[in-house]
Write a protein that binds this DNA or RNA. Structure first.
Length: 552
RNA sequence: GCGCCCAUAGCUUAAUUGGAUAGAGCAUUUGACUACGAAUCAAAAGGCUAGAGGUUCAACUCCUCUUGGGCGCGCCA
C-alpha cells in the first residue's frame, strides 16, 4: 500500500500548492510506476496538469513541487528529480519498503484487505446458463471470471452475493420437456419422430432412461420438473468441481409464476408500474417498452398480443427484484452474444429509477479450444460442444481457471490444452505455483538451522538492499494496486499478469541473492522476504481460485 | 442494411485507463548447474500498435472516416 500512502501525502501538498497559486480547481494526478529504464520508484504527472491550467512551463513547476515534496515528505521520500516533459520522479526510503514487508508478514492472508462489509452490498450474477444442457467452456470462462471478481470485491470490503439466475420458464424449457418426453416414448417403442430443433444430446436420453427405470405411469410424469432436476444436478456438480459455489439460485418462477394476495406476479406489477410512469404503452394488442427513450434503437415487446410475457419482461422484473433486495450495485457477466441486450436492460434500470452506473454489465468473448495448434470445431446445435467438465477433467481445475483468467474479458481466449497440461515454466500456472513450492522448500530448509532469527523485531531488514530485493518488495506491495485496478476495470485478469511478473522478479532475486549462507543476519532477513513472497503468491492465487501446492 | 465489440512482434497477448524508449510468454539463436528445487536463469533478435486524418505538452488508449474479423438485430430465450 506504499503507493496509497504516497498519494495521500502528495494530495495535501498539491492542494496547498494550488491554493497558494490561486487555483481553485481540483487536479487529479497519477502516481505511477515509471518505465523500466528509469531508476525511480514512482513518478507523478501533476506538474504537467497544473502547467496546462495556469499556462506555465511544467518543468519549472515540477522543480518547485519536487522541492516541496522533499521538504515535507522526507519521512518517506529519499530523493526527487524532474524528468522528461515534467514528471517528478520519486525515490522512496528503504525503511518504507521494509515496513511494507513487515506488514505483509504480520497480516498474512489478510494483507491488502479492507474491513469486511465496509463498502455496501453487491450482487454478481454469472453463468446463469439455461438448464437445458451441460455447461460448456464458454460458461466456464464466465464462472471463472465471476467467481474471481467476487473474491476480489470481497477483499476490498464489499458485501458480495454470487447469484445464478435460472431460466426455468419459457419456450426453451418447454422444448426441453418435450425432448425428454419424445425420447421416453421412443424408448417405450412408440413410433415418433424427434424434431431437429429439439435437444438431441445423450443426456436427454439418459433422463428418459431414468424415468423408465422408475416405472411410473406416463401421465404421472412431470417431464419439465424431471429434466431440470437432472440437468441442474450436473450443472451444480460441474461448478463444484470447478470450485465455484453460488450463494443463491434465483428461479425465474419466483417472478413469473408466484402471485401475491392480489393474484399478481412481480412481472405484472412491474408492467403496471411502467405503464403508470409512461414508459410502457399498448400498441397492436401488445404491451411495449419505450426503451428508445433511454438509448435503445427500438422499443421492445413486454407482453405479446396473446397475453404471454416475453423473456425481457421477466428480466426487468428480475433486475427490479435485485434492487429491492437491497443491492446497491448489480454486476452481470454475459457472454458477448448477449451484447444486444445491454442497451435495453440499461434503459430499464433507468426507468425503474436507478442510476445507469448501478448496473455493470461485463461482456466476455468466446473461448476457442486449441490442441496441437489446431482449433477444435464447436457447434451447440449438433450437441458437439466442448463441455467444462471435459476440460477440467483433462487439465485440472487450477490450469483451467488460470487460463480462463489469463486475458481481459474483452479479448477472445485461446485455450491451449497441451500447454495447460505442461509441467514446465512454459505453462504460466505452473510457473507461478513453482515459486510457492520453492519458497516453502527454502523455508523448510532454513528451519533446520537453529541459529536463524525468527522474531521480526530482531531482523535487520536493512540488509535487504540489493536492487533485486528492493524490486521484489516493491512488487509485493503492488498487490494492493492490482486489487484496485481489478476493481476499476471489473476484471480479474490483472492478477494473472501480476503473479507472472512477481514470479519473474522472484526468480531474478533467487539467482542473484543466495538465501541460505553462513551470514546468519542476511539469511534470516532473506528468509523473511521469501515468506512475504509466499504470502502474496498464495493470496493472489486464492483470488483466482487456484491452489498453491507446497510441493510439485 | 443497422448496431455492439475486436485488430499490438511469426503465434498468443499486456500496458496501472491519456504518460517517458509499447512490456511478457511461445517459437528461433546463444550462454549458465561441485551450494537453497536447472520444473530455473541470463542474453540476442523480433513493432510505423490494421490504414488515414483530428484533439493534446503527451495517444495503443479519446473523436471521425476507411479496411478486415467476431457477434447481435423476433410478439425466441
Amino acid at each position: 500500500m506504499i503507493k496509497q500512502n504516497i498519494t495521500t501525502g502528495l494530495n495535501i501538498i498539491v492542494k496547498k500548492y494550488l491554493k497558494d497559486r490561486g487555483v481553485n480547481e481540483k487536479i487529479k494526478f497519477n502516481v505511477e510506476v515509471p518505465p523500466k529504464d528509469v531508476a525511480a520508484d514512482f513518478a507523478i504527472n501533476v506538474a504537467m496538469l497544473i502547467a496546462k491550467k495556469i499556462k506555465m512551463n511544467p518543468k519549472i513547476l515540477a522543480q518547485e513541487i519536487a522541492n516541496i515534496i522533499i521538504m515535507r515528505m522526507s519521512y518517506i521520500i529519499e530523493k526527487t528529480e524532474v524528468a522528461g516533459a515534467g514528471f517528478i520522479n520519486l525515490y522512496i526510503k528503504n525503511e518504507i519498503l521494509y515496513r511494507e514487508l513487515i506488514s505483509i508478514l504480520c497480516e498474512g492472508d489478510k494483507y491488502g484487505s479492507l474491513a469486511e462489509n465496509s463498502k455496501g452490498r453487491v450482487i454478481v450474477e454469472f453463468v446463469s446458463a439455461n438448464p437445458t444442457g451441460p455447461l460448456h467452456i464458454g460458461h466456464g470462462r464466465g464462472a471463472a471470471i465471476g467467481d474471481s471478481l467476487v473474491r476480489i470485491l470481497k477483499r476490498l470490503g464489499y458485501n458480495v452475493t454470487r447469484e445464478y439466475y435460472l431460466n426455468d420458464v419459457g419456450n426453451q424449457i418447454s422444448i426441453l420437456a418435450r425432448s425428454v418426453e419424445i425420447r421416453y416414448r421412443q424408448l417405450k417403442k412408440e413410433k415418433i419422430d424427434f424434431p431437429q430443433e429439439y435437444y438431441c444430446g445423450d443426456y436427454i436420453i439418459n433422463i428418459a432412461k431414468r424415468l423408465i427405470s422408475e416405472n411410473k405411469n406416463i401421465n404421472e410424469i412431470d417431464f419439465k420438473y424431471e429434466a431440470i432436476k437432472d440437468i441442474l444436478r450436473t450443472i451444480k456438480e460441474d461448478l463444484k468441481a470447478f470450485a465455484v459455489e453460488f450463494d443463491n439460485w434465483f428461479s425465474e418462477e419466483v417472478i413469473a409464476f408466484y402471485r401475491d394476495s392480489n393474484g399478481k406476479t412481480e412481472v405484472d406489477k412491474m408492467c403496471e408500474y411502467l405503464i403508470l410512469k409512461g414508459d410502457a404503452y399498448l400498441k397492436d394488442d401488445a404491451l411495449w417498452l419505450a426503451s428508445t427513450k433511454f438509448g435503445d434503437d427500438k422499443d421492445r415487446v413486454l407482453k405479446r398480443s396473446d397475453g404471454r410475457y416475453t423473456y425481457l419482461a421477466s428480466d426487468i422484473a428480475y433486475h427490479k427484484n435485485k434492487f429491492e433486495r437491497g443491492f446497491k450495485k448489480l454486476i452481470n457477466l454475459w457472454g458477448t452474444d448477449h451484447h444486444g441486450y445491454v442497451a435495453r436492460i440499461t434503459a430499464c434500470v433507468q426507468m425503474l429509477g436507478f442510476k445507469k452506473e448501478s448496473l455493470n454489465i461485463i461482456l466476455y468473448q468466446l473461448v476457442s479450444i486449441v490442441r496441437n495448434g489446431k482449433h477444435l470445431a464447436m457447434s451447440t446445435r449438433a450437441g458437439k460442444f466442448v463441455t467444462l467438465k471435459e476440460v477440467v477433467d483433462e487439465v485440472g481445475v487450477d490450469a483451467c481457471r488460470f487460463f480462463f483468467l489469463l486475458r481481459s474479458p474483452a479479448s477472445q481466449l485461446e485455450f491451449d490444452l497441451e500447454l495447460a497440461k505442461k509441467r514446465s515454466s512454459k505453462n504460466p500456472v505452473f510457473y507461478v505455483q513453482y515459486v510457492n513450492a520453492r519458497c516453502v522448500s527454502i523455508i523448510k530448509e532454513g528451519k533446520i538451522r537453529k541459529d536463524v532469527i525468527t522474531n521480526i523485531g530482531n531482523i535487520n531488514f536493512n540488509l535487504l538492499n540489493t536492487k533485486e530485493e528492493r524490486d521484489l518488495i516493491k512488487k509485493l506491495s503492488a498487490f494492493y494496486d492490482t486489487l484496485l485496478v481489478s476493481e476499476k476495470t471489473m476484471s480479474p485478469h490483472h492478477f494473472t499478469t501480476y503473479l507472472i511478473e512477481l514470479s519473474d522478479i522472484y526468480h531474478r532475486f533467487y539467482e542473484k541473492c543466495r538465501v541460505l549462507t553462513d551470514d546468519i543476519a542476511i539469511t534470516s532477513a532473506r528468509l523473511k522476504l521469501i515468506e512475504g513472497v509466499m504470502i502474496i503468491i498464495q493470496n493472489g492465487l486464492n483470488l483466482l481460485g487456484v491452489s498453491a501446492p507446497k510441493q510439485m
